[in-house]
């Protein structure tokens, strides 16, 4: 069976201060139906830009090369109509639900808008479907909620509404961009449980964007680690923690304080995360890497298969968590 979402050598350029600069370089990975893939990286790593390229939300003036296929249709190159049909299958949930609803319109208006305007569903029918889907996401009193305004709902409840709204058009692909980062930790657990159930029950291909390697590891089958707009490692999530193959992934695992053990010093990564256009000519991580060789600064390593995943490092076999 072909992957529902397929990225092949995706490169995105933006005009920044008069110069054209690559913000993503040759990103390749795929997501099958019912599969969850985590996309992990620090600020400026390109994780949101990757999501935007899939969803068709790239900033004006962005140019691309490579391929983004949704259910086999290349949404970067096909005509508007085929592209639109393919993207109808893609739902997006954002980090801050309050920034993505109109505060002066009722929940019902917001939820039923797409059905009524784009799909020609009658108002009563659209409301009925909204109530049904709210029940599915664990909001039992949907009819009452439809008449409320966003400010009357807590952050966790509003995020459930956003998830419900994204499911109304029966998507096959769910792009979730830090959907629980703005929530309390107990609310995060509930919303994550909901997202996890939905993607299994509905067989959604999910791209889950987060800065939290632990969270990605817990809820995603595979995880892609980005740094400076490049794919550094793609691996089974379970292995990523126990046996990371890229020095950057290993450094991230070690830099996090451990909730289970008191430590006096953390293994901090020197320097700061680079954005794509600041990255050096060779390996983007080389200036901060404890495994770096002179050769790493000369030429950028290719992405190569290893252990059923992929890694962009010449010394991947030597990477150890304990040193």
């Amino acid at each position: 069976m072909p992957a529902l979402v397929e990225l092949e050598d995706l490169t995105v350029w933006l005009r920044v201060e008069g110069a054209t600069r690559a913000v993503l370089s040759e990103i390749s990975f795929s997501i099958g139906a019912g599969e969850a893939v985590g996309l992990v990286g620090e600020s400026g790593s390109g994780k949101s830009m990757t999501m935007r390229a899939i969803a068709g939300l790239l900033p004006t003036g962005a140019t691309t090369s490579g391929h983004v296929r949704i259910d086999g249709v290349d949404v970067l190159t096909s005509g508007e109509r085929r592209r639109g049909t393919a993207r109808d299958k893609v739902a997006v949930v954002f980090q801050d639900p309050r920034a993505h609803v109109n505060p002066v319109r009722r929940i019902g208006d917001f939820m039923t808008e797409a059905l009524r305007i784009n799909h020609g569903v009658s108002k009563d029918d659209a409301r009925r479907r909204a109530v049904d889907i709210l029940r599915e996401v664990g909001v039992p009193d949907g009819a009452r909620r439809l008449d409320q305004y966003p400010h009357e709902l807590s952050g966790g409840l509003l995020q459930r509404v956003m998830i419900a709204a994204s499911l109304l058009v029966d998507p096959t692909v769910l792009l979730a961009d830090e959907p629980t980062t703005a929530l309390d930790v107990t609310t995060q657990a509930e919303v994550m449980a909901l997202i996890d159930d939905l993607r299994r029950e509905r067989g959604l291909a999910m791209l889950f964007i987060t800065h939290d390697l632990d969270l990605a590891g817990a809820v995603c089958d595979r995880t892609v680690v980005l740094y400076a707009g490049q794919l550094m490692e793609e691996q089974q999530s379970a292995r990523l923690h126990s046996k990371p193959r890229h020095p950057y992934t290993a450094a991230l695992v070690k830099a996090r304080p451990d909730i289970g053990a008191t430590s006096t010093r953390l293994a901090a990564i020197p320097g700061r995360p680079l954005s794509s256009f600041e990255a050096p000519h060779g390996c983007a991580f080389a200036p901060r890497c404890s495994y770096s060789l002179p050769a790493c600064e000369q030429a950028r390593p290719e992405v190569r298969p290893l252990d059923g995943g992929h890694v962009r490092c010449v010394r991947a076999e030597e990477v150890q968590l304990d040193d």
Binding site: G138, V185, T186, Q188, A189, E190, M192, A193, L194, D196, D197, D212, D214, L215, G217, A218, V219, A238, H241, S242, I259
Partner: peptide, 16 residues
């Protein structure tokens, strides 16, 4: 609170 922290092998549970 402790159980809500994501970690290896963590499966979030829906409480209600």
């Amino acid at each position: 609170l402790r159980d809500s922290v994501p970690r290896a092998g963590w499966r979030p549970q829906r409480r209600n």
